[in-house]
């Protein structure tokens, strides 16, 4: 199945990678992105999220941060990962990947 869009949300922060139109939407700026960059990104993204569970929850912290990663496919099906006060071990790798992507397009 082909990926149409990936949406990352952490509290009020949202990053949308639109594979169809080759655009990135982040903090009210729209960036164009080249196909080869998108392909490299997707390869790494799949690598990072391959073993993720659907949900990560830690109810013991006072105060909290919620996050969500949604992968939308061309056939309109989707896969969702989410969490509250807990992230997969390699969540930071995804953050680095996303921030490096933004650096490339800025």
């Amino acid at each position: 199945m082909e990926v149409k869009e990936i949406v990352f949300t952490k509290n009020n922060d949202k990053l949308i990678i639109d594979f169809l139109n080759k655009k990135i939407f982040y903090q009210d700026i729209i960036y164009n992105i080249k196909e080869d960059l998108l392909k490299k990104y997707l390869k790494k993204f799949m690598n990072i999220t391959f073993n993720w569970q659907e949900e990560y929850i830690n109810n013991t912290l006072l105060d909290g941060q919620s996050w969500e990663v949604i992968i939308l496919y061309n056939d309109n099906s989707f896969k969702k990962y989410k969490g509250h006060n807990l992230t997969p071990d390699n969540f930071e790798v995804l953050k680095r990947l996303n921030d490096n992507l933004l650096q490339e397009v800025r």
Partner: peptide
């Protein structure tokens, strides 16, 4: 720290429970 948590944790000092504020600048 890896998850960039901003929260209040339990710590202790001289046998008493104290709050520890973890604070960071995140993308939000």
């Amino acid at each position: 720290l890896k998850s960039e948590d901003i929260c209040v944790l339990y710590g202790s000092e001289d046998g008493k429970t104290i709050p520890i504020l973890l604070y960071t600048i995140n993308n939000n």
